[in-house]
C-alpha cells in the first residue's frame, strides 16, 4: 500500500466519521455546550478583585479545550466498536497507518471546529485583546490540538475495549496532556500580553517537539492496538 493509498483511506475514514457526526450532531453540540459552560463557570470560580480577566483567560481557555475535546475523543472508537465496524476496516486493504491517520484527521476536524466556535465566545467573555495576534494563537491551538488528538486517538482505541471507557480515558490521557497544555497556556499568556516573539520560542519549540514525537509514537504503537 503506497502513501497515496494510505492518504485515500485516511480521507475516506475521516469523511465517514464527519458524515456520521453531521447526522447525529449529539457529540458536537454536547462538546460545544460543555465548552461554553466550562468557560462560564471558570469565569465565576475566582475572586474577581484579586484575579483579572486577563490573568485567568489563558488557563480557562485550555482547560475548556481539554475537557471539551476529551468528550469528543471518547466517542471516536465507540463508533467503530458498535457493530464491530472496525472489523470491516481491518478486512479491507486499509493499513493501520491509514486507519490511524483517518481517525486523527476526523477527530482533529471535530475538536478544531468545537475550538473555533468557542474561541470567539472566549474572546468576548474574557474581553481579550487578541485580534492582532490571532494568527499566532491559532498556530498554538493547531499544534497543541494535534498533539492532544494524536495521543487521544490512540488511547481512545485502547479504552474502548474496557468497561468504563469514559472514566478510563481521562485517567490515562491527562498525564499526557500536561506538557502540551502547560506549554499552550504559557504561550497563550504571552500572546495575549502582546509579548515579543522571542519570549515564545522556548515553549513553542517544546510544544512542537512534543507534537512531532508523540504523533509518530502513537502512529507506530497504533498497530499493536488494532490487531487481535
Amino acid at each position: 500500500m503506497g502513501s497515496y493509498e494510505t492518504l485515500r483511506v485516511a480521507l475516506a475514514i475521516a469523511a465517514k466519521d464527519l458524515l456520521v457526526e453531521q447526522r447525529t450532531k449529539t457529540a458536537f453540540f454536547s462538546s460545544l455546550v460543555f465548552a461554553i459552560l466550562v468557560l462560564t463557570i471558570l469565569y465565576f470560580a475566582r475572586d474577581a478583585t484579586a484575579v483579572s480577566d486577563l490573568d485567568l483567560a489563558p488557563g480557562a481557555l485550555w482547560v475548556t479545550f481539554t475537557f471539551a475535546g476529551m468528550l469528543g475523543l471518547n466517542r471516536a472508537f465507540l463508533l467503530e466498536r458498535e457493530n464491530r465496524a472496525v472489523d470491516g476496516l481491518r478486512l479491507s486493504p486499509a493499513t493501520p497507518t491509514g486507519i490511524f491517520l483517518g481517525k486523527v484527521l476526523g477527530n482533529l476536524v471535530f475538536v478544531g471546529v468545537v475550538e473555533l466556535v468557542s474561541l470567539p465566545l472566549f474572546i468576548l467573555f474574557y474581553d481579550v485583546p487578541i485580534w492582532r495576534q490571532l494568527g499566532l494563537l491559532l498556530l498554538v491551538i493547531f499544534l497543541a490540538t494535534t498533539g492532544f488528538v494524536a495521543v487521544g486517538t490512540l488511547f481512545s482505541a485502547i479504552v474502548v475495549r474496557t468497561r468504563f471507557s469514559e472514566v478510563m480515558l481521562p485517567v490515562l490521557l491527562l498525564p499526557f496532556l500536561f506538557p502540551p497544555i502547560v506549554a499552550a497556556v504559557q504561550l497563550t499568556r504571552r500572546i495575549v500580553a502582546l509579548r515579543p516573539f522571542d519570549e515564545l520560542t522556548g515553549w513553542l519549540s517544546m510544544l512542537a517537539a512534543f507534537v512531532v514525537i508523540f504523533f509518530f509514537l502513537s502512529l507506530l504503537l497504533f498497530e499493536a492496538i488494532l490487531e487481535e
Partner: peptide, 8 residues
C-alpha cells in the same frame, strides 16, 4: 455483527 454504521 453488521460491521457497518447505523447512522449512515
Amino acid at each position: 455483527h453488521t460491521m457497518m454504521y447505523d447512522a449512515l
